[in-house]
């Protein structure tokens, strides 16, 4: 494997890792986060707009994370406070983000397709890549060594035990979902202001779901999840490399077919391994006292 391909793998894995770590917080606390896709998409959009406005990728990604937190708060309100079904509410959040981003884009820039291009010197060049791996390490330590890490685990595995120990389960879940929104927002930001030069419509293209798949494949643990993201990232990098190069019977293979590759890997991995991966026991359930 060439160094090029490795570098490319690391780069395209970055948004996945952020989003998957975000998903980990939420899911370990017992809230299924199928809304990752929508959180990422809104984050990508807000980060692009923020960078265009402030001319700083740092402030831009803060915009992205704030947007993620905001949308995650809406999600938490529905599933924790109002006890809505998590799959249905998550899907609604995804659709909301899909509709909201081109709508606001149209208001701001009078086009629905994409934001204006961000100048090269105002984009991130490598920061998110290092940041996401630092975050992986932080998450490993945090889950293992801090009280809040333990609380999140118990909120998802046996919420009644956490409640009996005097910790408020829903407060822990709220925090976890908000953190999840911030990280998914950062994942989106690294898509729009690190890997590309603008936000374009539906640019996440299923990466939120791929992050979920990585989370399942990684058994909801930070390091294995990040490695699973690398696998999907590798498939993506290979796919990019093969475009226009791969040949079948003298003709180049259409790009559309090559682009299937990462999704194909996702399906194969999930079909092959999901049976051996057990989610937190209380995931997807509403916590009620008594």
């Amino acid at each position: 494997m060439s160094w090029d391909l490795l570098a490319s793998t690391l780069r395209v894995s970055t948004p996945l890792i952020f989003a998957a770590l975000g998903g980990m917080f939420s899911e370990r606390s017992g809230v299924i986060n199928i809304a990752l896709e929508g959180l990422m998409l809104l984050g990508a959009f807000a980060a692009a707009v923020g960078t265009l406005v402030t001319h700083s990728p740092w402030l831009g990604s803060a915009f992205g994370m704030a947007a993620g937190v905001l949308l995650a708060a809406v999600y938490a309100l529905f599933v924790i406070r109002l006890r809505a079904n998590q799959i249905v509410a998550g899907t609604a959040i995804n659709m909301l983000a899909m509709g909201l981003t081109p709508f606001i884009c149209k208001i701001l820039y009078d086009v629905t397709g994409s934001t204006p291009s961000i100048p090269l010197h105002e984009r991130f060049h490598s920061v998110p890549l290092y940041l996401c791996w630092a975050l992986v390490a932080a998450c490993v330590l945090w889950m293992r060594y801090t009280p809040t890490g333990l609380w999140v685990s118990f909120a998802g595995e046996h919420p009644e035990a956490l409640d009996a120990a005097g910790i408020r389960v829903n407060r822990v879940r709220w925090m976890a979902v908000l953190v999840s929104g911030a990280l998914a927002g950062m994942g989106g930001a690294s898509l729009s202001i690190f890997l590309s030069s603008s936000f374009s419509r539906d640019m996440t293209a299923g990466r939120g779901f791929m992050a979920l798949a990585a989370l399942i494949f990684g058994k909801w643990k930070p390091l294995p999840t990040a490695l699973a993201c690398l696998l999907f990232g590798f498939a993506d990098a290979v796919q990019i490399r093969l475009q226009g190069v791969a040949v079948w019977g003298g003709h180049p293979i259409p790009v559309e077919f090559i682009q299937i590759l990462p999704y194909l890997v996702t399906i194969l991995v999930l079909a092959g391994f999901v049976g051996r991966s057990h989610p937190p026991k209380a995931s997807g359930t509403v916590f009620e006292k008594g």
Partner: peptide
């Protein structure tokens, strides 16, 4: 019913 989480 015990308030214990199995994997921990």
């Amino acid at each position: 019913h015990f308030m214990l989480a199995g994997p921990y």
